[in-house]
Amino acid sequence: METQNPLQIQELIDLCITFLCGPRSWQDLLSCALVARSWVAPAQASLFHTPHVTNHRFMKIDRLALLFCETITAYPFLASYVRELNIVEYFYLQRAAIGKICSTTFPRLECLSINLSRISIWEGELSSLVTLKTLRYLQLDANEGFPVISSFVSRFTPTIEHLDLRCRQWDGILVDTSVPPIKITSLRLEVQLWNAPPQRLDIGLLYPFEISQLRALEVVDAGSLVWDSIPDRTRQTIKILQLDLKSEPIDLSRFPHLILLRVVLPEDDVSVLVRTLKTITSEHCLETLIIWTGFCEPAPEECKELDITLSSLPLDPFPKIQMESSVIRPRREQDLRDMFPKLVSQNKFIMSHFRRWNIEDGIRKVGRRFMYT
């Protein structure tokens, strides 16, 4: 029986390519494309899966962005491998370069991230991307008020399901109501106001994005959101909630169908988290509770109160409690167990993970397990 060349076995090829995939693996993938003819397409598919179109004089990645522009123009078939596209401007990105990218047809593009200082001046070029019928995830980082880019927003494809909205100003998305609504299933909100009076986010001003079928919600600085602006119907559909608590507790009893809850341990006042957790009732069906400890060093008495609150959650079955800490400043598992002796003594499982939370993907990756089952 003739033995098959291992370089031709598709399963082995896929394993090798998957093993090498990573943020800095492009040189390895280029080498893989030279191994054998059968390796070319899989290596190219991984190499062009998530290109970053950026320009930063302190980073070497700008050379890769220019090389990508030239390559995708010379070989348009490579655009069919692109699933995620990140367009980021740090200082000045030439209009000709971004024009080449936007004029290229990406038949399978699913995720698009746009971070430009003035989105309104790029509206014409970007329109060909935001109107793609294959687009499902959109991250929009805007330095401008939304009325300025309202015409741009009104062009968005109705196939968008996941919205990651980051802004420096908050005045709502004011779009002509004749524009068909876009029903999204997950939403991430982050507002960092510069030189502006304190403002609060009103989800009711998100038109044309409709949240009646929202399954996952992430709010960076939960105190900036007007929680009463979330309709009761939407509270009933939310299954995944991620909160960065600052100064005010959140009433979780208004979200009775939560499956996964992730909270960031407050740096200044842990009691905010304790008061939030105390709103969990026996009616909840919470399966996983994640607490990101980060760089916070809570006082012993605060840890004790949090430990008592967690161990007495009125849930049956008891949820899986998962602690996460920063990879920059990781905590030992034993240290985390020492912080919660009551949970440990009651044999209520604590699973410690020392990993970097992919905050850019946010709910999109965490919620995928629950969103499509």
Rank of each mutant, 00 (worst) to 15 (best):
41 A>N: 06
44 Q>T: 10
190 E>R: 09
205 L>M: 08
348 K>V: 09
1 M>T: 07
64 L>V: 13
186 S>H: 11
255 F>E: 07
71 T>Y: 03
225 L>G: 08
208 P>E: 11
75 Y>S: 05
303 C>F: 07
164 D>Y: 08
222 A>E: 04
231 P>H: 14
370 F>S: 10
15 L>D: 05
122 W>C: 07
126 L>G: 07
196 A>E: 04
157 T>A: 15
51 P>F: 13
234 T>A: 15
124 G>W: 11
262 R>C: 05
290 I>W: 02
218 E>R: 10
251 D>V: 08
128 S>N: 14
360 E>N: 06
99 G>S: 13
345 S>D: 09
275 R>Q: 09
59 M>F: 07
59 M>P: 01
21 C>G: 03
220 V>G: 05
163 L>M: 11
219 V>A: 05
177 T>H: 07
98 I>L: 12
28 D>A: 09
190 E>H: 12
354 F>C: 08
17 I>M: 10
148 V>W: 00
323 M>W: 00
307 D>G: 05
369 R>W: 10
310 L>T: 09
168 R>W: 15
344 V>T: 00
309 T>F: 02
261 L>G: 04
336 L>A: 02
82 V>D: 03
24 R>A: 01
88 V>A: 04
373 T>M: 01
353 H>L: 03
99 G>N: 14
351 M>H: 10
207 Y>D: 04
345 S>N: 05
201 L>H: 06
324 E>L: 08
237 T>E: 15
102 C>Y: 15
132 L>K: 05
334 Q>R: 15
75 Y>L: 06
32 C>T: 07
136 R>K: 15
249 P>I: 12
92 Y>D: 14
18 T>C: 13
146 F>Q: 05
177 T>N: 02
76 P>F: 12
327 V>D: 13
278 K>Y: 10
348 K>F: 07
116 L>S: 02
229 S>D: 02
188 R>S: 03
224 S>E: 06
48 F>P: 02
237 T>F: 15
148 V>F: 04
267 E>A: 12
37 R>G: 07
123 E>T: 05
369 R>L: 14
210 E>V: 15
61 I>E: 07
213 Q>L: 11
257 H>Q: 02
115 N>P: 00
194 W>V: 14
256 P>W: 14
357 W>H: 15
201 L>S: 01
195 N>I: 06
294 G>F: 07
49 H>W: 03
193 L>D: 02
104 T>S: 12
334 Q>M: 08
9 I>D: 07
59 M>Y: 12
137 Y>M: 09
306 L>C: 06
369 R>N: 04
177 T>Y: 02
155 R>N: 11
55 N>F: 10
33 A>T: 01
136 R>P: 00
118 R>G: 01
307 D>N: 06
304 K>W: 08
102 C>E: 09
47 L>F: 03
234 T>C: 11
143 N>W: 15
